[in-house]
Each structure stands twice: as structure tokens, then as C-alpha cells.
Design a protein around this nucleic acid. Structure first.
Lengths: 209, 209
DNA sequence: ACACCAATCTAAACGCCGTCAAGATGGTCT
DNA sequence: AGACCATCTTGACGGCGTTTAGATTGGTGT
């Protein structure tokens, strides 16, 4: 969102890695994941098709970098949602809604993030260490009143993550339009689903409405 | 799993559509989704690269056919799990476990099924009409003791489907190996997660253990 | 100041891909 | 028999990811 892509072009670019990632994200937003070829990225950045190979060993490695940015931004979005609420149940619902909204607002990026994971058969390590997943677990932990075992905490986090990701994908399939209208908009719909999950029932302090 | 792929080959194949789908599934199981090119499928079926175009307008249309088979088989798997239990809560958990196990046992097929949906931004219509999704809703409905509104029923089904799909993907990312061991195997782990979702709390008859 | 080196980029090629147009083949119907 | 039409093949096109070899440059050491 910052670097320019076409001006003097003095053979040595300066920061081509950065420019390539930006170019990739621009293509992603403009033309979708299907148009994201390495050659197209190079074209967009104004360099030859072989240039990227001096900065990424692979197309996969470039996509990895793009995905990495995506995870960081998702992390930030969840942080913000978490900070905005204190009440335990609401906080969890808000984090869930924030997750799904991120996926809805950045569909191409979200897809790249998970496509990379599908290709590797693994989510990024960063997730477990200090990323968005950790964000969710901490929030559950902080609201569990100390009654939760380590295992229960982990299970609740997994359940929440799976529900969030599953819902994010279903939303992108545009499956639930009639229901959304019935419930008065998408966010109301999301809240209703998360409420319905009865999520965290075993772990969170029970002060149900 | 039935038709042969290489014998007399009398110019006119007989049932090439069938053979192409079988070839695609064979490649999928053997070499994974990345190796699934239209040319490879034609090669596997013993025909020229252009032959498939007389039976499918696209590579996408062939994959669609493969995915279609996948949804049917998923449907059958859920049916079986549903028939095997009466108790409400157990039935729902068993269906969930069956869903995730299908994805685990047919990872490449499962990926093609959802990749097609991601490309189309839509799940197959079949799902809503008489497919696996309907299977889940009916099971929830039959066990809700008539207390559930139409909307609650739909929301519960959505919640269940999202949780199942989300968990299926996370399992394929091999994220939870330590937890699985701790809980005594994968199926026990799956049951624990589904239990943790406190799923269907609003809808299913409450006779908790 | 200059020579050199390593980093960076280009040009050209390879094999693969999806797809299409033209022609060959062969069963079927009259 | 002959004509027709679905089916399959051949050969081509442009685009892709990637590699190799060579051109260009900025920075470093003397």
C-alpha cells in the first residue's frame, strides 16, 4: 500500500522483495487468486519473469510471505476486537465476529493464507507462538475464572478456531443470504450462529442472559 | 473403482466420461491434488489431451463431476453414522465425527470438493436439497423435541456444519498431534472437541451425562 | 581513483499446462 | 450402399513455473 511500482527503474530496484509482495497483494485484490501468477507479479512490479527468483526460491515462498502478512493483520484485527469488550461471553463472540469479518473483507488474502497451509499440511508456527490463535486462547483463559484445565482450554480454543474458520468459508460461499436478511444483517447473523454454538460452555463463566 | 483404463482401446472408448472421472480420482489418491492436470487425466485414461473436451466443456466441469461424487459419498457416510445411533446427543457427535473422518480418509477428494466451491463462491445446490447438509438438519430436527423454531434449526445446522468443516481442515493440518495422544487417539480427540462446542445446546433435548 | 566482487537483473530456453481448430475414424440409420 | 454425426487425434497457440547463462550495477578494499 506504500511502494510505487513504475518510475525510474534503475536496474537495481532497491527493495524488490517488498515491491513483489505489494504487487502480489494488488493483483489479489484486483483480479483474485486465480490471476496470481509469478509472471503477473513480476509484470506488475515492472521486472523480468526471472527477477523474483533472487528474492524468493519459489512461487510458494512468495505466497508464504503474502500469507505471513495476512496472519499478522488478522492478529491485529482480533486484538482490537478483544480490547473493545470486557464481558466474557461478549468478548468471545466479538472475537469470532471479527475473525469472520476479516475473512469477508479480505477474501483473496484469506484464501491465500489457508491455501498455503493446505499445500504444506500445516498452519504457520507463528500462530501457536504469539499469533491470532494464541490471542483466542488467552481470551478464553482470562475469562475462565481459573476453573479450566490446560486441556479444556486448548480444546475450547480449537473449537472456537474451527467454528470461526468454518463460518468464514461458508459466508464466502454466500450460502445464508435469506437467513441474514431475516435476522437483520450479516453481523446479527454471525452473532446468532456463535451464540448457537453454545461455545465455551464448559470453560467460560456462566452468566447467560 | 470399477472401469479398466488400458486394454483394446477401440478408438471409440465406450464410456470415456466415466473413465475420465475414475482416472482423475486415481491420480488424486496416488499423487494428490497438485498433480491433477487435465492432460494427466487423459494420459491415465489412455486418450489424447483433447479427448476430454467432448465430454466436459472445461477442466472445471470434470472436477465438478468428481466433486459431485464426493458429496454423494459424504452423504452416505453421514447417513450411516446417523443410522447407527438413537440417543440425540450421541447421534450428533457421531455425525460430526463421521464427517471429519471422511475428510481425513479422503483428503484429496475433500479438497477438490471445497476448492470447486471456493472457485464458484457457492456450495453445490444438491447440499441444500437432499444432501449431507439436509442430513444434519433432519437429525437435529428429529432430536429437538419440537421445541426448535425453523430459524433455530437452521442456525444449529449451520453451526454444526461450520464446526465440522473447520475441524476437518485443522485435522488435515496435523495441528493437534500432542493433544490427540493425550486424549487417547484421534477419535477420542474429535469427540472431545465436539463435546466442547456444547453444540446444539439450544435445540437438542437436554439429557447431559 | 580504480579494480574487483557479489548482488541483482535480463534474455532465452525448457517442459508443462489448458484450450481450440482441423481432420481422421467408425458406428448407425436410411 | 451412402450419409451423418459423435467421437477421438494431430498439431498448434499462448501462458505458466523454472533454470541457465550472461549483462549491469553498487559497494568494498587498495
Amino acid at each position: 500500500m506504500s511502494t510505487a511500482t513504475a518510475e525510474s527503474r534503475p536496474y537495481h530496484h532497491g527493495d524488490l522483495s517488498r515491491a513483489l509482495i505489494d504487487a502480489a497483494r494488488k493483483i489479489l485484490e484486483t483480479d483474485g487468486p486465480a490471476a496470481l501468477s509469478l509472471r503477473a507479479v513480476a509484470r506488475e512490479a515492472g521486472v523480468s519473469p526471472a527477477a523474483p527468483y533472487h528474492h524468493f526460491k519459489d512461487k510458494a515462498e512468495l505466497l508464504e510471505a503474502v500469507a505471513h502478512e495476512g496472519w499478522h493483520e488478522l492478529d491485529a484485527a482480533l486484538s482490537k476486537a478483544r480490547g473493545a469488550t470486557q464481558n466474557a461471553r461478549d468478548q468471545m463472540t466479538n472475537i469470532g465476529v471479527a475473525y469472520v469479518c476479516f475473512a469477508r473483507d479480505n477474501p483473496a488474502l484469506y484464501r491465500v493464507m489457508y491455501d498455503r497451509s493446505r499445500d504444506k499440511d500445516a498452519l504457520p508456527d507463528q500462530l501457536k507462538d504469539d499469533g491470532a490463535y494464541c490471542q483466542v486462547r488467552d481470551s478464553i483463559g482470562a475469562n475462565s475464572g481459573g476453573r479450566a484445565t490446560e486441556i479444556d482450554l486448548e480444546l475450547a480454543t480449537i473449537a472456537a478456531w474451527c467454528a470461526g474458520h468454518g463460518l468464514a468459508e461458508m459466508i464466502s460461499f454466500k450460502q445464508f443470504a435469506p437467513l441474514k436478511d431475516l435476522l437483520g444483517g450479516e453481523e446479527a447473523f454471525l452473532r446468532a450462529v456463535f451464540e448457537h454454538l453454545g461455545m465455551f460452555a464448559k470453560v467460560i463463566d456462566q452468566d447467560p442472559a
